[in-house]
Design a protein around this nucleic acid. Structure first.
Lengths: 223, 223
DNA sequence: CCTGTTTTTACGGGAAACCGTAAGCCTCGA
DNA sequence: TCGAGGCTTACGGTTTCCCGTAAAAACAGG
C-alpha cells in the first residue's frame, strides 16, 4: 500500500490535479509532500529517509522551467537518478507532457521507473490507474503514448556532434567551426572531421541536407 | 459577476485544476461546462445563446492535441474568433503553456481577449486573480510572461516563404524547390525568387545561414 | 620498438548555394 | 497606347559545401 507520496511538479495547476487524483484514491496527502523544484524533492526524500519514515512513491515531471532560483538538479531524469541513489526501493511514477513511447521505455530500462503517464486528454484517469497499479505492486505503462511510426533511431550524439550542430544552428559557417571546436578543446576539430561527422549523421538518419538535421534536433529537443 | 463559465481544455488534469480554481472562488461550476474539444466548446456557446442563457466567460487553452476524432476548429485562436462571432460580448480568458509576452499581446489586440495566464509555477493563483479581475469588469495580463529580450521581430511569413522553409527542413534541395512550388501553384516559383526570398528572410533576422532560419522557425513553432 | 589499425587531417575536384546584374513580364495610370 | 516601376526570372561568377582519396598522427598488441 502507498501511504507517503511526494509530488515533484513545477506547474501549480498540474500539481493540484495530481493531489486531487491521490485524494480520489483515498490516499492521504499532506500539503508538505508536494514541491515545485527538484532540489526540494531530493531534500525531502533524504530527510524522510533519515527520519526513518521514507516515501513510498515519487510522482515527478520530467521538465522543470528555469527560474530566478538557481537549482542543482534541473530535470526529472536527474532527480530520479539521485532519488534512486539515496533510496533504491522508492517507487517512481513519471507524469510528463513527453508522449513518445521510446522515451518512456528508455526510462523503464535505464532508471527502473514503475509507471509512465503522459499528460493528455484523459490523463487524470490514466494517472489514477497508474497509482493503483503501483500500489498493488505492479508497473504501468500508459497506452496513450505515441508509438513512433518508422522505428525511431535512437542515436546518441557525441559532444563534438552536438557542438557542430548547435554551431550550425547559430549561424557559424562550416569552415569556422574548427576554430570554435579548438577554442573549446573539443576533438576532433579538423574541418575534414566536421564534414565527416555531418556526413555520417545525415547518413544515419537518411537526410540529405544540414537543414533537415537541424529540424530533427529541434523537434527532438536535442538542441 | 461571473456565473456561467465554459472551460475548453484538452488535458484533463489542467481542466480539473481550472475547475478547482473556480470552486475556490465560489463560482458554481456544472460538470457540463467543461469540454475537451474546440468544436464542443463552440456548440455549447451556440446552444447557450439560443436558449437565452449565454456564457459569461470562456476559459480556453491555445493548443489542442490531435486525436482520432476529426475536428473543425483545432486551435484556441480559431475558437476565440468563432466564439466572438456568435457572442461578441463573451469574456475570454486564455490559459496556455505559451509564455511569450508578444503572443499574449497579439491576442489582446487581434482577438480582444480579457485575460492571459501562462501555465507555470504559480499558475493557479495567477488564474484566480485573472478570474477575479474579469468578474470586476477588468482585464488581466499575467506578470509571469517572458518578455523577449532583443525586441522580437514579429515578421509574418508569406505562403511562399513558409513553403520554402519547410521544404528545406524536409531535405528538398534548393534547386528542386521551384518544381515543388510550381506543382503546388505557389508563386513566385523561380529559382532566383527562392534564393531571393531566403536571402531577404535571413537579412531581416540578421542570419547568415539557412540552418539558423530553420532553427528559428522550429523554436517559434512556425514550422 | 616495430607494425598494423584506426582516427584525424589535408588536399582537390565537382556540385550546390549565394549574390549581383540584367532581361522579361505584368500592372497601373496618364 | 505607351512608359515607368515593381516583381519575377535568367544568367554568370564567386564562395561555400560536399565527398573521395591519401597522407599523417594516434593507438594497441606483440
Amino acid at each position: 500500500m502507498l501511504q507517503k507520496v511526494l509530488i515533484a511538479e513545477d506547474y501549480e495547476s498540474s500539481n493540484i490535479s495530481v493531489q486531487k487524483a491521490l485524494e480520489d484514491l483515498g490516499i492521504s496527502h499532506d500539503i508538505k509532500n508536494q514541491v515545485y523544484y527538484c532540489d526540494d524533492a531530493l531534500a525531502r526524500i533524504k530527510k524522510a529517509m533519515s527520519e526513518g519514515n521514507p516515501y513510498d512513491l515519487l510522482i515527478t515531471d520530467l521538465s522543470f522551467d528555469d527560474d530566478h532560483t538557481k537549482q542543482i538538479i534541473t530535470t526529472g531524469n536527474a532527480l530520479i537518478k539521485a532519488a534512486k541513489d539515496v533510496q533504491p526501493d522508492l517507487k517512481i511514477l513519471v507524469f510528463s507532457v513527453e508522449n513518445r513511447l521510446s522515451v518512456a521505455q528508455h526510462l523503464f530500462k535505464e532508471c527502473d521507473i514503475d509507471a509512465y503517464v503522459p499528460k493528455g486528454r484523459r490523463d487524470s484517469q490514466d494517472l489514477k490507474l497508474a497509482i493503483e497499479t503501483i500500489s498493488k505492486g505492479g508497473r504501468y505503462l500508459s497506452g496513450n503514448l505515441k508509438k513512433e511510426e518508422k522505428a525511431e533511431i535512437d542515436y546518441d550524439f557525441s559532444v563534438v556532434e552536438l557542438a557542430i550542430i548547435s554551431q550550425l544552428a547559430q549561424g557559424t559557417s562550416q569552415k569556422d567551426i574548427p576554430h570554435y571546436l579548438q577554442a573549446n578543446s573539443i576533438t576532433p576539430f579538423g574541418l575534414s572531421s566536421v564534414e565527416k561527422k555531418l556526413g555520417s549523421m545525415k547518413a544515419i538518419f537518411g537526410f540529405t541536407k544540414n537543414e533537415q538535421l537541424i529540424a530533427y534536433c529541434k523537434d527532438k529537443n536535442i538542441i
